Amino acid sequence: MFKRLMMVALLVIAPLSAATAADQTNPYKLMDEAAQKTFDRLKNEQPQIRANPDYLRTIVDQELLPYVQVKYAGALVLGQYYKSATPAQREAYFAAFREYLKQAYGQALAMYHGQTYQIAPEQPLGDKTIVPIRVTIIDPNGRPPVRLDFQWRKNSQTGNWQAYDMIAEGVSMITTKQNEWGTLLRTKGIDGLTAQLKSISQQKITLEEKK
């Protein structure tokens, strides 16, 4: 169930391209415009997507990853294993993690069937560096609404905000991946996880038929 919630949630996290980005210092504006741009692209490019579902990787690479804190999220997933990894191991892992996100997020976007969304009203940021933004996803086919909290983090150097995690039903996506990959990290280390991520990233994206 959580895996499905995570995939549905990713439908609204794909941010804007650099040329049309919203105010990078306001995570609420980023979330709002990102959702609108993403849904528009999914709707307008269905012919290309249906002809070649792996085209979704391109959308992810162009529109999402430049505005997601990939390395920060990847380091959180590694936890204690990050500090013990060599620079070469980290570089290989982050490259594999990025390719994994292209496949995983692309597969999530393949679930698009006309969903709509509501974003919580903007709250004062103050001096906060981590801000959760509640998004409610509404399914046109009558499924119950899904309420999610996207975690946005302020870059201490640039002042810009980027998304790095999502919490559904009190469970963090980062925590879920830590639990899912924990045994592999304990037995085969970061190299074993890197190899698995490379394998997963090679899987073809498949479209979910409308139910």
Rank of each mutant, 00 (worst) to 15 (best):
Q115R: 01
Q118K: 14
L64W: 06
Y164Q: 00
I49G: 06
N160C: 09
I133P: 04
P66R: 04
I205P: 08
H113G: 11
I59A: 11
K177P: 14
E91S: 13
A96F: 06
R98E: 10
W161A: 04
R134E: 02
R147T: 03
P27Q: 06
N179S: 04
F39K: 02
G182Q: 11
I49F: 08
I137T: 04
L184T: 09
R147Y: 00
K102S: 14
Q202H: 12
R57Y: 14
R4H: 14
T187A: 00
L56C: 04
D61Y: 10
M31E: 02
D165V: 00
Y117W: 07
L65M: 14
L101D: 06
S156Q: 07
E209S: 09
F2L: 13
I133A: 00
T38I: 08
N155L: 01
L197K: 15
K29R: 10
K177Y: 15
A92G: 11
A73R: 00
L10Q: 00
P144Q: 06
M173R: 01
V70R: 05
V70N: 15
K71P: 06
P27K: 01
E63R: 04
P15F: 11
E33T: 04
Q202E: 08
K128P: 12
T176N: 06
A108F: 12
N26V: 04
T187F: 02
I200L: 09
F94W: 11
P124G: 13
L193C: 04
D127S: 07
E180G: 02
N179P: 03
I167K: 08
G189Y: 01
E63K: 04
F94C: 06
D54N: 15
F2D: 00
D191Q: 09
M31F: 05
Q178L: 02
T194R: 07
A22N: 12
A21P: 11
L65Y: 12
Y72L: 01
I167E: 04
I174A: 00
A104R: 01
Y164D: 01
A104G: 14
K210D: 07
P121D: 04
Q118E: 13
P124A: 00
T38Q: 08
A108S: 00
N160M: 11
L11V: 05
K177A: 01
I119K: 05
L109A: 00
L56Y: 08
S17Q: 15
D139T: 14
R4V: 15
K102P: 05
D139N: 07
T86Q: 11
Q157Y: 12
Q196A: 06
Y105D: 07
V146F: 07
Y164M: 04
R98W: 06
D61V: 05
R41Q: 06
A88Q: 15
Q162K: 06
D165G: 00
P124K: 12
P66N: 09
K83L: 04
M31V: 02
L42R: 04
K29Q: 13
G170T: 02
L42S: 07
A88S: 14
L207E: 13
A108T: 11
Q123S: 13
E180Y: 04
E99Q: 11
L76A: 01
T38F: 09
I138Y: 14
K83G: 07
K83F: 02
S172A: 00
F39C: 02
V77D: 04
M173Q: 00
M6H: 01
T86H: 10
D149M: 04
Q157M: 10
V135T: 03
K204V: 08
A88K: 10
V70Y: 07
Q162H: 03
Y93F: 07
G170S: 01
R98P: 09
R41M: 07
M7R: 03
A85W: 04
T20Q: 09
Y67N: 03
P144R: 07
D191R: 10
M7S: 02
Y164W: 05
K83D: 02
A85D: 03
D165K: 00
R57H: 14
Q107M: 13
I167C: 02
Y117H: 05
D54I: 12
V12W: 12
A96N: 13
D61M: 06
A14L: 15
E99H: 14
Q69V: 04
P145D: 06
D139V: 13
V60A: 12
L109W: 13
R147G: 06
L207S: 15
N141P: 06
R186T: 01
G79A: 06
T183A: 00
L64R: 01
E45V: 12
K3M: 02
V131Y: 11
E91M: 13
N179E: 05
D149E: 09
N179K: 05
L30D: 05
F150Y: 03
K154T: 11
M31L: 05
A108V: 03
Y81C: 04
W181Y: 11
Q107N: 10
W152F: 00
L125E: 14
L65I: 14
V8K: 01
S84R: 10
K71I: 02
Y55V: 12
A34Q: 01
N52S: 07
L56A: 07
N155S: 02
Q202M: 15
I130N: 03
K188M: 08
T58S: 09
R186M: 01
N26G: 06
I133R: 04
I174H: 11
M7V: 06
A19V: 11
L109H: 08
A104W: 12
A120Y: 14
S156A: 00
R50N: 08
I49H: 05
P66F: 06
R134C: 00
K211I: 11
T183H: 05
K37D: 06
T58Y: 08
A104F: 05
V68E: 04
E99L: 14
G170V: 02
A108L: 06
T158V: 05
K71N: 06
K198V: 09
I174V: 03
V146M: 03
D191M: 10
K128F: 05
E99C: 09
I205C: 06
K188F: 05
A9V: 15
E180R: 03
M173W: 02
L56I: 12
A21H: 12
R153Y: 01
A195G: 13
E91R: 08
L76C: 04
A9N: 01
L30E: 11
Y81V: 08
A163P: 12
G142S: 11
G126V: 10
L148V: 01
I13S: 03
P144D: 02
A35P: 02
V171Q: 01
P132V: 01
T176C: 00
L10S: 05
A22L: 07
S199N: 10
V77A: 08
Q69W: 01
I167A: 00
G74W: 00
R134T: 03
E208D: 12
M173D: 00
D40L: 09
V68P: 00
F39V: 02
Y82L: 05
P87E: 08
K29M: 15
Q36P: 15
A51F: 09
P124T: 13
P53A: 13
E63H: 04
S201K: 14
Y112K: 02
G114N: 07
K71V: 03
K128D: 03
Q123N: 09
K154R: 14
E33K: 07
L64G: 01
P66C: 05
K210V: 07
A195Y: 12
S172K: 00
Q203L: 13
E63P: 01
Y82K: 00
R50F: 09
Y67W: 03
W152Q: 02
T20I: 12
I205W: 14
Q162S: 13
A75D: 00
R50D: 08
A21G: 12
Q115D: 04
G74E: 01
K211H: 10
D139Q: 14
N179V: 06
P15Q: 15
A92W: 09
L56N: 08
Q151K: 05
Q123Y: 13
D149S: 02
G74H: 01
T183R: 09
Y55H: 12
I137V: 14
A96W: 07
I200N: 08
V171I: 00
E63W: 01
S172V: 00
K102R: 13
K29G: 12
Q24P: 15
K102N: 10
Q123T: 12
Q24D: 13
L56F: 09
N141V: 07
T58E: 07
E33R: 04
R98F: 08
Q36I: 13
P15K: 12
Y81I: 05
L148K: 13
N155H: 01
G182M: 12
R98L: 09
Q115M: 05
T158S: 09
R143H: 04
L193N: 13
P124N: 09
P15H: 12
